[in-house]
């Protein structure tokens, strides 16, 4: 039985100049859920995530995260309080190039949260082990592959102990053979009950891990429902057309993915 959702968007409208990008978005995420947003390029997926963390301000509608009414936040202090709870992982990793991997993880918890360096350090090293990069703590971002950098970026977000994490097409910039290692980390997080909102073009992955899937087009939610429903029995013609294109007519979809197949996602990766 669903309790009060952790994230709630109601009738969110946003325009860049006279270009309406979000035209009435309703979206709910329960704590502990993994929710995917899929849809064609330019449909407003990144914009939705940016609104959630206050990087963009909608012109109309409500965004609530936990107890925070995001659209009403005035000034920097409120936004900072919000962002302490909301992790964000970008398509281009955006690590800090002048800091070692470990310092990338340490800087925000020590400078922003004011936590003691030693405690944060132990935690950060554990996080690096978790994303299987314990041996890269002293490396600099420029020395890592894209997949490794993205795993550091995820660990960096986790080091702030957020309540939820937003992932914006975190595998789109990666070479196909590195997609799997990043998705494996995200899958682990969702299994541990971290609340995750993912914008992704990895349809198989979205289907596998998502509790809910939202399909957006032209700034509207065209369809949403359980992963099973949206991917197996989409009701809307637009969703059907998009999925058919995204999944590719030729590629045969396994009716029920075998567990051993899921451990190797590399060959499942698709880019749209």
């Amino acid at each position: 039985m669903p309790s009060e959702p952790l994230i709630q968007l109601r009738d969110v409208h946003l325009a860049f100049g006279d270009n309406p990008v979000l035209r009435g978005i309703d979206l709910d995420v329960q704590a502990g859920q993994a929710v995917s947003i899929i849809g064609p390029s330019g449909s407003g997926k990144s914009t939705i995530l940016r609104c959630m963390t206050g990087l963009l301000r909608p012109q109309r509608g409500n965004i609530r995260i936990g107890d925070t009414a995001v659209e009403q936040l005035q000034g920097e202090a409120g936004l900072i309080a919000l962002r302490k709870q909301v992790g964000f992982v970008f398509q281009q990793y955006n690590l800090f190039p002048h800091l070692s991997v470990l310092d990338n993880l340490l800087i925000a918890p020590t400078k922003v949260l004011g936590r003691p360096r030693q405690a944060v350090r132990d935690e950060a090293l554990a996080l690096l082990d978790k994303v299987r990069l314990g041996h890269k703590a002293t490396a600099f971002p420029g020395e890592l592959s894209g997949g490794q950098q993205q795993r550091v970026a995820i660990a960096r977000a986790l080091a702030m102990r957020p309540k939820l994490i937003l992932f914006d097409e975190v595998t789109s910039a990666l070479d196909p053979e590195m997609v799997g290692e990043v998705l494996a980390v995200i899958r682990e997080l969702t299994e541990e009950g971290m609340t995750c909102v993912l914008v992704t073009h990895e349809m198989r992955f979205a289907e596998e891990i998502s509790d809910q899937v939202y399909f957006t087009e032209h700034g509207r939610i065209v369809e949403h429902g359980s992963a099973e429903q949206v991917f197996r029995a989409p009701t809307h013609a637009r969703t059907q057309a998009f999925l058919q294109h995204a999944l590719g007519e030729g590629s045969q979809r396994p009716s029920r993915p075998a567990p051993d197949v899921l451990t190797n996602l590399g060959r499942y990766s698709l880019s749209v």
Binding site: L55, E76, L79, A81, R83, V86, F90, N94, F96, M160
Partner: peptide
């Protein structure tokens, strides 16, 4: 994107400037 990454880690403007932008 460096500003954006730092902002989403809850840095204040001044902190971003001194800890992220200036050293680079």
């Amino acid at each position: 994107t460096q500003w954006e990454a730092a902002r989403s880690l809850a840095f204040s403007r001044g902190q971003i400037f001194t800890s992220i932008i200036l050293p680079q």
